[in-house]
Every structure is written in structure tokens, then in C-alpha cells.
Amino acid sequence: MTAPPTAPPAPTSRTTSPVPPGRRWSGRLAVVVGVLALGGAAGLAGYSVLDREPVESRPVAAALPTRPVTRSDLVNSVQVTGRLGFAGSYRLVGQRSGTVTWVPRPGDVVGRGERILGVDLRPIPLLFGSVPFYRPLAPGSEGADVRQLERNLVELDHADPDDLTVDDSYTAATARAVRRWQEALGVDETGRVAPGDALVAPGSVRVGTVDPLIGQPTSPGAPVLTGTGTGHSVQVDLQLSYRGLVRVGQAVRVQLPNGRTVDGKVSTLGSTAEVESGQGPTTGTAAQAGGQPTGCQGTSCPATAPVEIAVSGPESQLGGVFEGQVTVTFPAETRRGVLSVPIEALTVGPDGAFAVVVVDQAGRRTVPVRPGMFTAGRVEVSGEGLAEGSQVEVPA
């Protein structure tokens, strides 16, 4: 049985005209563009097309911070470790026979004219100099030890400089000054000086260890004590590759364990100290004394030169730190009056060369530069279109 024919569609009141395929795609594109435009406008307004609620804004790239190009002196430096301690090392011996009746305590500081030993109840004072009192001195004596004695008598106010001329001759004026000194000590006023009447050191002594015990007999040449000076110095084992950067009298900076920084000056620059094994020398170096690495790789160690640095300024600047590991900064090279920027400002231009991005009223532009000396945080730069005060981008 054959199905009945399908009825034709009912006529409608709308009439359409045929649309070419290309026109159909154009219409669809217009609708899509219109929707996108509407969505973009809604996004700019900050609301959703559907529910009109606020939506999260898209992040906007922030401008990079800028820093000025500066003109100044740049100093390239070398930092090495060392050990802070008291300057000088003294070992004093006596020149008198008798029984020890008084000794100082470790840590005491003995200055010029102060008692450093007692023998048979006689105080033995400390005088400054380099020649021990090894012989009797009396009017008519001549020599460097006489000059040393007279200089100390003047410094101790036992002699009037207008009355006593400091020279190599022991005169009647010298004898008068000696008697005043003996009166102050409470000993016989003979006007003469016997061997061992005083001990001699280059300066004030901080007592370390004391050899004799009270009541123990002593004799000429017997050890009295060991000690140090009262000033401070830093001992450094300097690698030979840096030796050419150091000279006696050179100013340096010393960073202490407490963070303070004090001035120092190179006082001695020693000869080469060869180190042949990773065990280090048996005498001990400054680095080993500080418990620091010696720079050895396996059994190979670099040759070093000992450097002593005198710490300038009063002891109060040390903030209570008298010994310990420190960092010494030696200035290696100085570039005066050069332009520099923070190292982070360096970038690479399209041609692969170094450049910086300059920001001014005209906008941003890339300026090729030639880098020079690098220091802590800054680099010397030169190039066309770069001037002092220009602002350059520095990534945070």
C-alpha cells in the first residue's frame, strides 16, 4: 500500500530572497564581531553581560622602577679574611738576682714607669725603648741606653726639658733626674742606674703569662713574663696573586664580627711563605689560628705572604671585640669621575651588545653602552646619549 503524498509546507507571510553563500558568512561574521564588541564594552565597564555583577580586572604590566646615572669614583677591591688580635708579642727577662716579691696578673696593662716586677721588695718599673739596662749607668756614661733613659725621665716628668738635654751623655742633670725618679719609686736615691733597675719594652704591655711565682728565686736572664701590646692588629695570609695590590702604609677597611667597620693601615708586608701540603705549616698561620680555610685544594695550597695591619682609632671603636675573625678590604683599583649604573640596569640590545633602557619625557629608548669596571652593585658605563642624571630602568 502506497503512503499518501506529503503535504507541502504551509505558506507564511514572510518572504525571503536567496542569499549568496558569501553574504551568509559575512552576516555571521558581523554578528560575532558585534557580540565580541559588546562583551569588550561590558568588560571595560567592569560588569558581566549576563548578570551585571563586578568581575576581576585583567592585570596590567607595571612600569619598571628607574635609577639615575651617577658620576663618582668607583673602587674595585679585594676582600680577604684575617684574625684580629693584640699588636706585638713580648717576652721579657729580668736582670736582677733575688727573690720575687710581686708579679702582675694576666690581663693587667703595665704602662711607662709602672711596676712590672718586684724583687727583694724593690719595684722594677717598665720603661719604653729597645735597649735593656745591661750595665751600670752613672755620670760620664755614653751611649744609646743613656739617651733612652733620659727620654723616659722626661716623659715621666722627672726631668725638666730645659734642664736636661736628651742625648747620649750621662750628665749631672741626668743624675738629678734619676734621683727624683728613685725618690718616686721609694728606693735609695743614688743618682745611678744598675742593671735590672728597670725592664724595657717598646710600649705598654698587656700581661699574658707570668713565669716566676712569688717567693721564687730569680737571676739575670730568667724569664719574667710574656705579653702583647695594647693596640690591635690583624694578621692576614695574603695569596701571592694579590700581593701586588698591597703596600706598606696602605689604608684598608676592617669589618669586625659585630658588624662594625674600622680603619686600618698596612704596617708590614712579609716575604713569601710557601705551603707545600694541605696540612699547612707546623708553625701555624693567621688563617689557621682563626679556624679559617687556607684555600687548599687537596694537598695543593697557594703560597702566601704574611701581612700585618694596624687598627687605627681608640679601642672603644671595636665595640668590645678584641680578638676573632675579620674581613679586610684592600682597594685594588680606582676609577675617578666615571658614569655608573646599578648592575641590574644592564640589558642586551638587539645586536647582542650591552645596553640600558633610558626613560625620559620622550618615552623609553634603548641606549648601547660599553661596560667598564664592576664594583659592589654598580658598573661603569659609557656611550652616546647617556648623561649624568639620566633615568634608567632597573628591574626589581
Rank of each mutant, 00 (worst) to 15 (best):
S26L: 15
S26K: 10
L44F: 12
L44M: 11
L44W: 13
P65Q: 10
R67A: 15
P68I: 00
R71T: 15
V75A: 13
L92V: 11
R96H: 05
G107H: 09
D108N: 13
D108M: 04
I116K: 05
F128V: 14
V131M: 03
V131E: 06
P132M: 05
Y134F: 15
L137S: 01
G140M: 09
E142Y: 13
E142H: 12
G143C: 01
A144T: 13
Q148C: 04
A159L: 07
D163P: 00
L164G: 05
T171F: 10
A173L: 09
T174W: 09
Q182C: 09
Q182M: 08
Q182S: 09
E183L: 12
V205N: 05
Q216H: 11
T218A: 13
G221I: 03
G227T: 03
H232R: 13
S233K: 05
V236G: 10
S241D: 11
Y242E: 11
L245M: 14
V246I: 06
L256S: 02
R260A: 14
V262Q: 00
G264L: 08
L269M: 12
G270D: 02
T272E: 03
E276M: 12
A287F: 01
P293S: 14
G295D: 06
G295L: 01
G298S: 05
C301H: 07
P302R: 04
T304E: 06
A305E: 02
A305K: 05
Q317S: 14
F330S: 01
G337W: 03
V338C: 06
P342A: 09
E344R: 14
E344A: 15
R364M: 13
R365D: 02
V369F: 06
V369Q: 02
M373K: 08
M373I: 14
M373D: 08
V379S: 05
S382H: 07
G389F: 04
V394P: 01
